[in-house]
Simulated assay, not measured.
Amino acid sequence: METRRALLVDAFADEPLSGNPAGVVPDAAGLTEDQMRAVASELGASETAFVRPGDEGEGREVRYFTPEEEVDLCGHATIATYAALFERGEIDAGTHTAQTAAGDLAVDVGEDDEVWMEQAAAEVAAVDVDHADAADALGIDVAALRDVGADLPLARASTGFPFLVVPVNYFEHLRDASPDQGAIADLCERADARGLYAFTFDALDRESTLHARAFAPLAGIPEDPVTGTGAGACGAYLRRHGALDGEFDEIAVEQGHLLDRPGTVRVETDGHDVRVGGRAVTAMDGEITVPENDDDDIVVA
């Protein structure tokens, strides 16, 4: 049977076994959707990126699979992919094109190992969801949401993966949340979103702008450690609502501490154009046996 190189790369992190792990298959040419989905399920990361030659020989096509489905874009898997390609000398520092289902996106790789990716143009829209329902889904007292809701309403925000954005007043309330995955899934369906992104300005690190948590049960992800698309969408949402100073200044979003996988996403946005950046560290480098189209058995070597 055929084997392919497979990596687990921790994105938005400076140390292994922190940040958000992504699967990366750097040579996925010829793999079918069923094979990619099976490999993603075996690797077990929230998303796995599959890299193939780009159209007309330009850039690279990148497709993203959760253990259950294909998604249009994944921020942390993109950062992980290009950091791993650079680390192994397969690409040089500079600007590269990632051809994704969300569009062709620029990825900048720095000599300092930091990777920045362009995201799809931000979409921010009002939603017909009240604070009581969001609070019930998160297992948070509704007062913690209404306290900031006058200035920052619930909204649907997307840079390629749509989130229901939920502001929370204090870290302790976000920390002590008791999320109901079924209720979150129902709420996301009502809001035409794929996940719920809850955040607070009450961050742990004095250099962080926000602390966040992300839940995406509709994509098979109960809680994501550090979420690039969520941070980018939330940054655009905050710009649109005038909650941040400066027009395009960088903000830092911390996440993952409650899952013992702390990481930081850096975001630049004017409310429409969005870039997110960070570093990534390879935690596992090996080979995976790819099943035949009708064979679900996969063995990691």
Rank of each mutant, 00 (worst) to 15 (best):
A77Q: 05
E292T: 05
Q181C: 01
E58N: 04
T100D: 05
T78H: 05
D130M: 06
V107Q: 10
A157V: 04
R63L: 13
A283D: 07
D130G: 13
N293A: 15
P179D: 00
I140E: 04
T100V: 02
I288V: 11
N293G: 15
A212T: 12
E287V: 04
T227K: 10
A216C: 03
E42L: 07
A126G: 13
A38L: 03
G242A: 12
D202F: 00
D270W: 11
T81W: 02
D192Y: 12
D249F: 02
E111G: 13
S46E: 01
A132F: 11
E2A: 11
D72K: 12
P225G: 12
Y197L: 00
V226D: 00
A203M: 02
G271H: 05
V115F: 10
F65T: 08
G242R: 04
E287K: 05
V107L: 05
L154R: 12
D112R: 04
E268H: 15
A45N: 04
A150H: 00
D128K: 11
D186S: 14
H211E: 12
R146Q: 15
L196I: 10
G228W: 02
N293R: 15
Q119A: 00
V253Y: 07
A143N: 07
T289P: 08
A49V: 09
L154D: 05
G139F: 14
N20G: 13
R206C: 01
H241A: 08
E189G: 03
A13F: 08
A236G: 02
A183S: 12
A135C: 09
D133S: 09
M1H: 13
T48K: 01
P167E: 07
G232T: 00
A40V: 06
G263T: 07
V300Y: 06
H131N: 14
L105T: 03
A155V: 05
V168P: 10
R52Q: 07
V165Y: 01
I91C: 05
A243M: 14
R239A: 00
T97K: 13
V71D: 01
D10P: 08
I79H: 09
L31N: 14
C188F: 15
E15A: 12
I79E: 07
E87V: 06
G54V: 10
A137L: 09
G256P: 00
V226S: 02
G160D: 15
Y82P: 12
